[in-house]
Nucleic acid binder design. Sequence first.
RNA 1: UGGGGUGUCGCCAAGUGGUAAGGCAGCGGACUUUGAAUCCGCCAUCCCAGGUUCAAAUCCUGGCACCCCAGCCA
Length: 564
Amino acid sequence: MTEKVDPIPIKTDFIRKIVNEDLKTGHFNGVVHTRFPPEPNGYLHIGHLKAISTDFSIAEDYGGQCNLRFDDTNPIKEETEFVEAIMDDIHWLGYDWEDRLFYASDYFPQLYEWAVQLIKDGKAYVDDLSAAEIREYRGTLTEPGKNSPYRDRSIEENLDLFERMRQGEFPDGARVLRAKIDMASPNIVMRDPVMYRILHTPHHRTGSEWPIYPMYDWAHGQSDSIEGITYSLCSLEFKNNRELYDWFLDQLGIHHPRQIEFGRLNVTHTLTSKRKLRRLVEDGWVNGWDDPRMPTIRGMRRRGYTPAALRNFMDMTGVAKANSLVDFAMLEFAVREDLNRHTPRAMAVLRPLPLTITNYPDDQVEWFDVPNYPQDKSNPEMRQVPFSKRIYIEQNDFMEDAPRKFFRLAPGREVRLLGAYYVTCTDVVKDDAGNVVELLCTYDPESKGGRSPDGRKVKGTIHWVSAAHAVPAELRQYGVLFSKPNPEEVDEEGQDFLSNLNPNSLEILPDAMLEPALAEVEVGAPFQFMRQGYYVKDPDSTPEHPVFNLTVTLRDGWAKARKK
RNA sequence: UGGGGUGUCGCCAAGUGGUAAGGCAGCGGACUUUGAAUCCGCCAUCCCAGGUUCAAAUCCUGGCACCCCAGCCA
């Protein structure tokens, strides 16, 4: 008999094909070295995750390495706080750059030398045009630009001016260093791109040492080259920049990595624009960068998403040359799939309805052994759950006028209390307004453990918590942040993405009741509240006031059936 | 109206001349002390129009749609 072997998933994305081809031809002598180059100006979000997983996993798959390099060439926007947060998030995801932590700012001296070299080669010049003039001279999408009047300065003058820029002699914006390429290029990136701007702003790492800072295009490729990167993977919008990336490297005649662009990942009902995420935080639409509704790594961590789920989601969505808008349901699937395997079960009643078992002894308490991992036969771990005369059940597990297909509690109907007894509803207690405030039931002592000796079938099984032992808790029920799949799509002119904010993205359940085993679990501990969803204990919890976040609900087959 | 890129099921995504993988969602059904999980089954002719070929999603021609580029941002 042949054994069934799980096929090794072979990824066939276009990047790996290029790598395979290089391996065959020996283009980079078999070296696969990538880098993840975040700018430390904000928190990582789900869009970055695609880049992180692509950069790290390709290196991993080929036995290569991936560096972490902070692209810190703009001191106005960048802060050390973000450097720390980004490193923390990447490690949490399970990726490691080992001792290869770099900063583009490490290369400022080298970059400066290379700039001098280009000037000497007549390939770069100092331009005195103002920012507005440069824009004007650049031309438009359909018209070529024109040469700056300063384009043909002598090498000596350029050298002198550039040196003085570096010495801090000129104010911000007075001059720039530009590459001398082609003002008529159909690719606007090639119309004498700016290499350095004057910025008398202290840098988070180099302090006040540099009054000039390199632009992305000038810094990035050279940084890749210095680090011996072979594959410089980036997103689609840098496609046009590749021509310049190649040009600089060719002029310098240094190690030339291969830039490959791939499509960005977007998820429905969410946003990844840093500007807009900042707005949500700063204007108080959410409670900070780690709000569980935020698509930031920090938010998803607090929400209870796991590294395994997120990484698997990346594999599910793939890498391709087109930007994508993936259904939020796919993310939820990945989260459930991982959580289902490893998460212990427990009982919690979200919206309690008191139920009294009239024929159960008044002061009796029974402790039932209930499996923590019923989904995993190989893990027999049990816990004890107290049962008594007065319990809470879920409000929506009872219906006074129940349709035939409703398998839960209704007047005269019998259900199984998970792990305990069969119970039959005999009476309904209402308040003056007619609301159901309590259920009276009888139990079948023969059905202890949830099985009856006569073998009669009970279709419904519901969860419960003993009232005397219940631990009150706050539950935070999270839904999608935006009502529309694409938050940018507004109904009326003049509106913006904020008009699509889901008013029900957070619902607080202040009076949930937990089984006692949940009383003192650690913050961050995940549980499946049976028949409801996966929850994780929130850092806002105090010993007197536990708080749990809804990570993701369970699929709800009843919700579907009910619609018919 | 310039240049670059992309168009395969509702959403991702394989396929690169030989007769459309897989996943998500959806829809049936089995099983069930979670209406969960699990398990079975169903679910596309490839943006359009011509052409080449015995044969095209794959090649050619011409359209169309969408995305990116005119920061001294990255």
